[in-house]
């Protein structure tokens, strides 16, 4: 339990909230971290999640929720400061390193994460994962993109359609 005088998470003075995953695991986390989620922030501002109640999150399993909270806890201080004045270049570099490491995970986890970020309205996390997926597309041919993202092999008709559209865009745009 964080001490009240802790400088971190000053929003609500390290007030704790409890989140309950779809598989009934309870997570206790600082309200400031949970508030990175727009949806949770409203509940928390209404006084929810404190004490023994907990906020049920029926759409998020415990594995995903712990990952989401890992992100929130890391980003809460920067978010609370609004980028100033503690956000030094070192801090930002550290966050960036964390983010890069954070999304270096299986696609199935990425999928769960972006869905959770979407449901909980955690803007930073959603863009982080979306950016990661966008990077996976970068510099690839259409077939390579399909393979990378686990599409099934194209049917002959799909293949023909792909080929046709590959010709369609010859990129001589002005």
């Amino acid at each position: 339990m964080a001490a009240p005088e802790s400088g971190d998470g000053n929003n609500g003075a390290a007030r704790m909230v409890t989140l309950i995953s779809s598989d009934n695991t309870r997570f206790e986390v600082e309200a400031a971290a949970a508030s990175l989620s727009q949806t949770l922030q409203l509940t928390i501002l209404d006084g929810g999640g404190g004490g023994g109640d907990g906020i049920p999150l029926p759409n998020v399993d415990s594995a995903t929720l712990s990952k989401v909270l890992e992100y929130c806890i890391k980003h809460a201080p920067a978010a609370a400061n609004g980028g100033a004045p503690n956000a030094t270049a070192v801090d930002r570099a550290e966050l960036e390193r964390f983010d890069n490491e954070f999304v270096n995970i299986d696609q199935s986890v990425l999928y769960s994460l972006i869905m959770a970020a979407h449901n909980l309205e955690i803007e930073g996390l959603q863009s982080l994962v979306a950016k990661k997926v966008a990077d996976m597309i970068k510099g690839k041919s259409p077939m390579e993109i399909r393979r990378t993202l686990g599409f099934p092999d194209p049917t002959p008709e799909e293949q023909a359609e792909m080929n046709a559209h590959m010709l369609e865009y010859g990129w001589a745009y002005e």
């Binding site: 597309i137 510099g139 599409f151 792909m162």
Partner: peptide
């Protein structure tokens, strides 16, 4: 440019 390629990925 990647988006133009992405357009070919599927319908």
């Amino acid at each position: 440019r990647d988006l133009a390629v992405s357009r070919c990925v599927c319908r």
